[in-house]
Simulated assay, not measured.
Amino acid sequence: MKKISLITGATDGIGKMTALALARAGQHVVIHGRNQAKAQQVVHEVITATGNPDVDYLIADLFSLAAIQQMATQFNQRYDHLDTLINNAGAVFDNQRVETADGIEKTMALNVLAPFLLTRLLLPSLLKSQDGRIINMSSASHRASGRPDLDDLNLSGNYSGQRRYSLSKLFVIWNTQHQAVLLQQRGITHVTVNASHPGAVATNFGQASNKGWLVNSIYKIALALSKHGPFHAMAAPERGAATNVYLATSPAVQGISGAFWGKSKQQQPATRYYSAADEQRVWDYCLRVVQPYL
């Protein structure tokens, strides 16, 4: 029986490269995207490139908690289990603070609440796998987050777009650690959860995420260097996907949970502002927000 992997944000960049790699490895790959035409095109490209016909797609706007719930329902109706969930989708936005229709600041909605809710909804399917793996995309930028204000988890303060992003990626690590402990407390050893950092990667991430002209310019220059210049300022998407592919497929990772990974190796995340109590507060906040959709 083929392993089934679901990858969010898989119509471009790291997500797409991860889908290609897992399809080449013989897995049944489910690609998530926001645009149906683009998702269909990527499915066609992956099937053509790999010769693996078992590539499907699901459509959802991850800024919407209701849409995430609907996608999880569709997955559970179509598939009898899930082996790997890769919460790859994420973005950094410009300095103007914007809320979703659910009243959630956009960075927190996409980077933290979306993977939190999707994982909760798909956990029953992951429990049906003999080796269920949850991979949450974080970033080394969490080290530059500054001290989080646990009374302002909807990031309503005077934050830059980059700081909101860094904080969101710190919270992803804390949620990953917390979920690993909860699974262990329930005696669940066949489902693991880990966080990953892809490195500075040349994708469309910078332009697609509405950062503003200065940051976009930096990304465009780095992207050009990585594609055409001798300096390779940013890793190619294939290399950026390598850690997620490793976490999804390597036998050496089986049973390891709650860790932070980069370059396919365990790394120590920043602990300067960490406390178990604050980790619990972030978890409780996420659970409270998504509770109506569970």
Rank of each mutant, 00 (worst) to 15 (best):
Q280S: 11
Q280E: 14
G262P: 02
K265W: 01
A252N: 11
A242E: 10
S250W: 12
Q267V: 04
E279Q: 15
Q254C: 13
A276T: 12
T243E: 11
A277E: 15
R272D: 05
R281G: 01
A276N: 12
F260E: 00
A270I: 03
A241C: 07
I256P: 00
G262R: 14
Y273L: 05
S257K: 05
L247G: 09
G258N: 09
G262K: 13
W261P: 04
S275Q: 08
T271H: 07
P251R: 05
A276D: 10
A270S: 10
Q254I: 15
A270G: 07
Q254T: 15
P251E: 05
A277Q: 14
G258D: 11
G255H: 08
Y274F: 11
A276V: 09
G258K: 11
A241F: 04
S250P: 05
F260P: 00
G258E: 11
A259P: 01
Y274E: 01
T243N: 10
E279M: 14
Q266I: 13
Q280M: 10
V253S: 03
S250I: 10
G258F: 07
K265C: 09
G255Y: 10
Y274D: 00
W261Q: 10
V245K: 04
R272W: 03
Q267C: 03
Q266W: 02
E279C: 09
V282E: 04
K265M: 11
I256T: 13
G258M: 13
E279N: 07
G258P: 08
T249L: 15
